[in-house]
Nucleic acid binder design. Sequence first.
DNA 1: GCGACAG
DNA 2: ATCTTGTCGC
Length: 334
Amino acid sequence: MAREGAERPPEETLSLWKREQARLKARVVDWDTEAWQRDPDFSGLQRVGGVDVSFVEGDSVSACVSLVVLSYPELEVVYEECRMVTLTAPYVSGFLAFREVPFLVEAVQRLQEKEPDLMPQVLLVDGNGVLHHQGFGVACHLGVLTDLPSVGVAKKLLQVDGLEKSDLHKEKIRLLRAGEDTFPLVGGSGVVLGMALKSHDHSTNPLYVSVGHRISLEAAVRLTRACCRFRTPEPVRQADIRSREYIRRTLGSHGPPALRQERIQKAQRSEACPRGGLGEPEGEDRSPQDHSPDPGAELDEPSEAPRDSGNLKNRAVMMSVSTDQSLYRAKNTP
DNA sequence: GCGACAG
DNA sequence: ATCTTGTCGC
Protein backbone atom coordinates (compact mmCIF):
# COMPACT_ATOMS: atom_id res chain seq x y z
CA MET A 1 0.00 0.00 0.00
CA ALA A 2 2.21 2.75 -1.10
CA ARG A 3 0.42 5.78 0.07
CA GLU A 4 0.47 8.63 -2.35
CA GLY A 5 2.51 11.71 -1.74
CA ALA A 6 1.30 14.09 0.90
CA GLU A 7 0.06 17.41 -0.32
CA ARG A 8 1.35 20.79 0.60
CA PRO A 9 0.34 21.69 4.15
CA PRO A 10 -2.02 24.60 4.67
CA GLU A 11 -0.56 28.02 5.37
CA GLU A 12 -1.51 27.63 8.98
CA THR A 13 0.89 24.74 9.39
CA LEU A 14 3.68 26.47 7.52
CA SER A 15 3.17 29.42 9.81
CA LEU A 16 3.58 27.22 12.87
CA TRP A 17 6.66 25.67 11.36
CA LYS A 18 8.20 29.07 10.78
CA ARG A 19 7.56 30.06 14.35
CA GLU A 20 9.24 26.88 15.55
CA GLN A 21 12.25 27.55 13.35
CA ALA A 22 12.49 31.08 14.69
CA ARG A 23 12.21 29.81 18.25
CA LEU A 24 14.91 27.17 17.87
CA LYS A 25 17.15 29.44 15.83
CA ALA A 26 17.89 31.37 18.99
CA ARG A 27 19.70 28.31 20.28
CA VAL A 28 22.09 27.97 17.39
CA VAL A 29 25.73 28.38 18.32
CA ASP A 30 27.73 29.30 15.25
CA TRP A 31 31.22 29.12 16.62
CA ASP A 32 33.60 26.42 17.75
CA THR A 33 32.78 24.94 21.12
CA GLU A 34 35.16 21.98 20.96
CA ALA A 35 38.92 21.93 21.28
CA TRP A 36 39.40 19.64 18.27
CA GLN A 37 37.64 22.12 16.03
CA ARG A 38 40.47 24.58 16.58
CA ASP A 39 43.22 22.07 16.07
CA PRO A 40 44.83 22.17 12.61
CA ASP A 41 44.71 18.38 12.45
CA PHE A 42 41.48 17.94 14.35
CA SER A 43 43.41 15.99 16.92
CA GLY A 44 40.93 14.89 19.53
CA LEU A 45 38.32 14.14 16.91
CA GLN A 46 37.59 10.45 16.77
CA ARG A 47 34.01 9.97 15.63
CA VAL A 48 32.10 11.69 12.87
CA GLY A 49 28.47 10.89 12.29
CA GLY A 50 26.43 11.00 9.12
CA VAL A 51 22.71 10.76 8.52
CA ASP A 52 20.55 10.28 5.50
CA VAL A 53 17.06 9.33 4.46
CA SER A 54 16.38 7.26 1.37
CA PHE A 55 13.00 6.62 -0.12
CA VAL A 56 11.08 3.71 -1.46
CA GLU A 57 10.32 4.33 -5.08
CA GLY A 58 6.74 5.05 -5.80
CA ASP A 59 6.02 5.69 -2.15
CA SER A 60 6.57 9.13 -0.69
CA VAL A 61 6.04 8.20 2.93
CA SER A 62 8.05 5.01 3.37
CA ALA A 63 11.71 5.71 3.92
CA CYS A 64 14.86 4.32 5.44
CA VAL A 65 16.62 6.47 7.97
CA SER A 66 20.24 5.69 8.57
CA LEU A 67 22.79 6.92 11.06
CA VAL A 68 26.41 5.95 10.72
CA VAL A 69 29.46 6.82 12.76
CA LEU A 70 32.89 6.77 11.19
CA SER A 71 36.24 6.76 12.90
CA TYR A 72 38.47 9.76 12.30
CA PRO A 73 40.78 10.10 10.51
CA GLU A 74 40.42 6.57 9.13
CA LEU A 75 36.86 7.18 8.02
CA GLU A 76 35.82 3.59 8.68
CA VAL A 77 32.30 2.77 9.71
CA VAL A 78 32.15 1.83 13.37
CA TYR A 79 28.40 2.09 13.83
CA GLU A 80 25.46 1.75 11.51
CA GLU A 81 21.74 1.65 11.91
CA CYS A 82 19.07 1.58 9.27
CA ARG A 83 15.41 1.71 10.08
CA MET A 84 12.25 1.90 8.03
CA VAL A 85 9.93 4.71 9.00
CA THR A 86 6.67 6.19 7.84
CA LEU A 87 7.07 9.88 7.24
CA THR A 88 4.27 12.12 8.40
CA ALA A 89 5.11 15.42 6.77
CA PRO A 90 5.51 16.18 3.08
CA TYR A 91 8.61 17.76 1.64
CA VAL A 92 8.34 21.50 1.38
CA SER A 93 11.38 23.50 0.45
CA GLY A 94 12.52 25.33 3.52
CA PHE A 95 10.92 22.85 5.89
CA LEU A 96 12.84 19.68 5.22
CA ALA A 97 13.50 19.23 8.91
CA PHE A 98 9.85 18.76 9.74
CA ARG A 99 9.82 15.78 7.45
CA GLU A 100 13.06 14.11 8.51
CA VAL A 101 14.37 15.40 11.80
CA PRO A 102 12.07 13.55 14.21
CA PHE A 103 13.39 10.25 12.89
CA LEU A 104 16.97 11.42 12.89
CA VAL A 105 16.66 12.46 16.53
CA GLU A 106 15.25 9.04 17.37
CA ALA A 107 18.19 7.39 15.64
CA VAL A 108 20.58 9.41 17.79
CA GLN A 109 18.59 8.44 20.89
CA ARG A 110 18.84 4.76 20.02
CA LEU A 111 22.58 5.14 19.57
CA GLN A 112 22.76 6.75 22.97
CA GLU A 113 20.96 3.76 24.47
CA LYS A 114 22.78 1.02 22.60
CA GLU A 115 26.32 2.32 22.16
CA PRO A 116 26.79 5.56 24.09
CA ASP A 117 30.55 5.33 23.64
CA LEU A 118 30.09 5.66 19.91
CA MET A 119 28.20 8.93 20.08
CA PRO A 120 29.66 11.07 17.28
CA GLN A 121 31.38 14.35 18.14
CA VAL A 122 29.85 16.01 15.12
CA LEU A 123 27.14 15.19 12.61
CA LEU A 124 27.33 15.80 8.89
CA VAL A 125 23.86 16.38 7.56
CA ASP A 126 22.55 16.10 4.04
CA GLY A 127 21.04 19.56 3.64
CA ASN A 128 21.66 23.13 4.75
CA GLY A 129 22.48 24.71 8.06
CA VAL A 130 22.19 28.48 8.40
CA LEU A 131 22.13 28.79 4.62
CA HIS A 132 18.38 28.77 4.73
CA HIS A 133 15.27 30.90 4.30
CA GLN A 134 14.87 31.35 8.03
CA GLY A 135 18.53 30.79 8.78
CA PHE A 136 17.63 27.46 10.30
CA GLY A 137 17.98 24.49 7.99
CA VAL A 138 17.79 20.82 8.84
CA ALA A 139 21.42 20.68 10.00
CA CYS A 140 20.77 23.41 12.58
CA HIS A 141 17.52 21.75 13.57
CA LEU A 142 19.12 18.38 14.21
CA GLY A 143 22.10 19.97 15.91
CA VAL A 144 19.99 21.98 18.30
CA LEU A 145 17.63 19.14 19.17
CA THR A 146 20.51 16.79 19.93
CA ASP A 147 22.91 19.45 21.15
CA LEU A 148 25.54 17.90 18.94
CA PRO A 149 27.85 19.93 16.72
CA SER A 150 26.53 19.66 13.17
CA VAL A 151 27.40 20.71 9.65
CA GLY A 152 25.08 21.24 6.72
CA VAL A 153 26.30 19.80 3.42
CA ALA A 154 23.99 20.45 0.48
CA LYS A 155 24.52 19.31 -3.07
CA LYS A 156 22.49 22.11 -4.59
CA LEU A 157 22.46 25.82 -3.90
CA LEU A 158 19.43 26.99 -2.03
CA GLN A 159 18.76 30.35 -3.60
CA VAL A 160 18.00 32.46 -0.61
CA ASP A 161 18.83 35.92 0.69
CA GLY A 162 20.11 37.11 -2.63
CA LEU A 163 22.11 33.99 -3.43
CA GLU A 164 21.46 32.84 -6.94
CA LYS A 165 22.82 30.63 -9.62
CA SER A 166 23.76 33.66 -11.63
CA ASP A 167 26.37 33.78 -14.31
CA LEU A 168 28.71 35.23 -11.73
CA HIS A 169 28.07 32.26 -9.49
CA LYS A 170 28.68 29.84 -12.34
CA GLU A 171 31.85 31.67 -13.19
CA LYS A 172 33.10 31.32 -9.63
CA ILE A 173 32.45 27.61 -9.88
CA ARG A 174 34.43 27.40 -13.07
CA LEU A 175 37.34 29.09 -11.36
CA LEU A 176 37.52 26.48 -8.63
CA ARG A 177 40.65 24.54 -9.37
CA ALA A 178 42.20 22.02 -7.07
CA GLY A 179 39.65 19.85 -5.37
CA GLU A 180 39.95 21.96 -2.29
CA ASP A 181 38.98 25.36 -3.56
CA THR A 182 36.18 27.34 -2.04
CA PHE A 183 34.42 30.64 -2.35
CA PRO A 184 32.15 32.33 0.14
CA LEU A 185 28.40 32.53 -0.27
CA VAL A 186 27.52 36.04 0.76
CA GLY A 187 23.92 36.84 1.46
CA GLY A 188 22.25 40.09 0.63
CA SER A 189 22.91 41.37 4.12
CA GLY A 190 26.62 40.95 3.54
CA VAL A 191 26.82 37.99 5.87
CA VAL A 192 28.68 34.87 4.79
CA LEU A 193 26.04 32.16 4.89
CA GLY A 194 28.25 29.33 3.74
CA MET A 195 30.99 28.21 1.41
CA ALA A 196 30.94 26.52 -1.95
CA LEU A 197 33.51 23.73 -1.84
CA LYS A 198 34.95 21.78 -4.70
CA SER A 199 35.30 18.58 -2.76
CA HIS A 200 36.81 16.42 -5.44
CA ASP A 201 39.28 17.10 -8.23
CA HIS A 202 36.99 15.58 -10.79
CA SER A 203 33.70 16.96 -9.64
CA THR A 204 32.10 19.87 -11.37
CA ASN A 205 29.40 20.86 -8.94
CA PRO A 206 30.58 22.12 -5.57
CA LEU A 207 29.13 21.25 -2.20
CA TYR A 208 27.43 23.98 -0.24
CA VAL A 209 28.68 23.87 3.33
CA SER A 210 27.11 25.84 6.13
CA VAL A 211 27.15 25.91 9.91
CA GLY A 212 24.69 23.66 11.62
CA HIS A 213 25.41 24.04 15.31
CA ARG A 214 28.36 24.43 17.65
CA ILE A 215 30.99 24.82 14.95
CA SER A 216 32.46 27.69 12.97
CA LEU A 217 32.14 27.88 9.22
CA GLU A 218 35.89 27.62 8.93
CA ALA A 219 35.99 24.37 10.86
CA ALA A 220 32.89 23.09 9.11
CA VAL A 221 34.50 23.47 5.71
CA ARG A 222 37.82 22.07 6.86
CA LEU A 223 36.05 19.05 8.36
CA THR A 224 33.94 18.44 5.29
CA ARG A 225 37.04 18.59 3.17
CA ALA A 226 38.84 16.18 5.47
CA CYS A 227 35.98 13.69 5.18
CA CYS A 228 35.79 13.63 1.39
CA ARG A 229 37.11 10.64 -0.49
CA PHE A 230 34.55 11.24 -3.21
CA ARG A 231 32.33 14.18 -3.88
CA THR A 232 30.15 13.77 -0.82
CA PRO A 233 31.76 13.41 2.60
CA GLU A 234 32.09 9.79 3.66
CA PRO A 235 29.74 9.93 6.64
CA VAL A 236 26.87 11.19 4.52
CA ARG A 237 27.84 9.00 1.61
CA GLN A 238 27.97 5.88 3.76
CA ALA A 239 24.64 6.69 5.34
CA ASP A 240 23.19 7.12 1.89
CA ILE A 241 24.68 3.93 0.49
CA ARG A 242 23.57 1.87 3.46
CA SER A 243 20.05 3.20 3.63
CA ARG A 244 19.59 2.46 -0.04
CA GLU A 245 21.06 -0.97 0.35
CA TYR A 246 18.74 -1.60 3.27
CA ILE A 247 15.73 -0.76 1.13
CA ARG A 248 16.97 -3.05 -1.58
CA ARG A 249 17.39 -5.93 0.83
CA THR A 250 14.09 -5.28 2.50
CA LEU A 251 11.89 -4.65 -0.50
CA GLY A 252 13.98 -6.49 -3.03
CA SER A 253 11.49 -9.30 -3.46
CA HIS A 254 8.42 -7.12 -3.32
CA GLY A 255 8.16 -3.47 -4.18
CA PRO A 256 6.81 -2.04 -7.38
CA PRO A 257 6.57 -5.07 -9.70
CA ALA A 258 6.83 -2.95 -12.79
CA LEU A 259 10.22 -1.67 -11.76
CA ARG A 260 11.71 -4.87 -10.42
CA GLN A 261 12.94 -6.20 -13.72
CA GLU A 262 15.02 -3.13 -14.34
CA ARG A 263 16.31 -3.23 -10.81
CA ILE A 264 17.65 -6.71 -11.42
CA GLN A 265 19.32 -5.76 -14.66
CA LYS A 266 20.89 -2.79 -12.98
CA ALA A 267 22.31 -4.92 -10.23
CA GLN A 268 23.84 -7.28 -12.74
CA ARG A 269 25.39 -4.45 -14.63
CA SER A 270 26.99 -3.14 -11.46
CA GLU A 271 28.54 -6.48 -10.70
CA ALA A 272 30.01 -6.59 -14.16
CA CYS A 273 32.36 -3.72 -13.34
CA PRO A 274 33.54 -4.23 -9.78
CA ARG A 275 36.24 -1.61 -9.65
CA GLY A 276 35.22 1.95 -10.26
CA GLY A 277 37.19 4.93 -11.41
CA LEU A 278 37.94 7.94 -9.33
CA GLY A 279 35.98 10.47 -11.26
CA GLU A 280 32.38 10.98 -10.41
CA PRO A 281 30.64 11.58 -13.71
CA GLU A 282 29.40 15.12 -13.97
CA GLY A 283 28.65 16.25 -10.53
CA GLU A 284 26.57 13.35 -9.36
CA ASP A 285 28.13 10.72 -7.19
CA ARG A 286 25.55 8.12 -7.88
CA SER A 287 27.14 6.26 -10.72
CA PRO A 288 27.40 2.46 -10.59
CA GLN A 289 31.17 2.74 -10.54
CA ASP A 290 31.03 4.98 -7.53
CA HIS A 291 31.36 2.08 -5.14
CA SER A 292 34.38 2.43 -2.98
CA PRO A 293 36.70 -0.55 -2.57
CA ASP A 294 34.60 -2.02 0.19
CA PRO A 295 30.94 -2.66 -0.42
CA GLY A 296 30.07 -1.59 1.40
CA ALA A 297 20.74 21.79 28.56
CA GLU A 298 19.85 24.70 28.48
CA LEU A 299 21.42 26.45 25.67
CA ASP A 300 19.46 29.54 26.35
CA GLU A 301 22.62 31.32 27.18
CA PRO A 302 25.44 29.89 25.09
CA SER A 303 28.71 30.14 26.90
CA GLU A 304 32.11 30.70 25.41
CA ALA A 305 33.40 27.80 27.46
CA PRO A 306 34.14 24.78 25.28
CA ARG A 307 32.14 21.72 26.14
CA ASP A 308 32.92 18.17 25.17
CA SER A 309 30.22 16.96 22.87
CA GLY A 310 31.35 13.45 23.62
CA ASN A 311 30.46 14.03 27.21
CA LEU A 312 27.43 11.90 27.76
CA LYS A 313 26.11 14.26 30.37
CA ASN A 314 25.10 16.50 27.56
CA ARG A 315 22.92 13.81 26.12
CA ALA A 316 20.48 14.29 28.91
CA VAL A 317 19.95 17.70 27.47
CA MET A 318 18.76 16.18 24.28
CA MET A 319 16.17 14.11 26.03
CA SER A 320 14.82 17.21 27.63
CA VAL A 321 14.24 18.98 24.35
CA SER A 322 10.67 18.42 23.41
CA THR A 323 9.83 17.36 19.93
CA ASP A 324 6.19 18.24 19.84
CA GLN A 325 4.89 15.60 17.50
CA SER A 326 1.99 17.71 16.38
CA LEU A 327 4.43 20.14 14.82
CA TYR A 328 6.02 17.47 12.72
CA ARG A 329 2.79 16.05 11.48
CA ALA A 330 1.38 17.62 8.40
CA LYS A 331 -2.23 18.56 8.67
CA ASN A 332 -3.43 18.00 5.21
CA THR A 333 -6.65 19.13 3.74
CA PRO A 334 -9.55 17.38 5.47
C1' DG B 1 2.37 30.81 -18.28
C1' DC B 2 6.99 31.15 -15.81
C1' DG B 3 10.34 30.44 -12.44
C1' DA B 4 11.75 27.96 -8.10
C1' DC B 5 12.51 23.81 -6.09
C1' DA B 6 17.88 21.67 0.45
C1' DG B 7 15.91 16.32 0.34
C1' DA C 1 14.42 12.51 -2.98
C1' DT C 2 14.16 8.97 -7.54
C1' DC C 3 14.74 7.53 -12.40
C1' DT C 4 17.62 7.39 -16.78
C1' DT C 5 21.95 6.40 -20.48
C1' DG C 6 25.96 6.93 -21.82
C1' DT C 7 30.78 8.18 -21.22
C1' DC C 8 35.36 8.84 -19.38
C1' DG C 9 39.27 7.01 -16.81
C1' DC C 10 42.02 3.53 -14.32
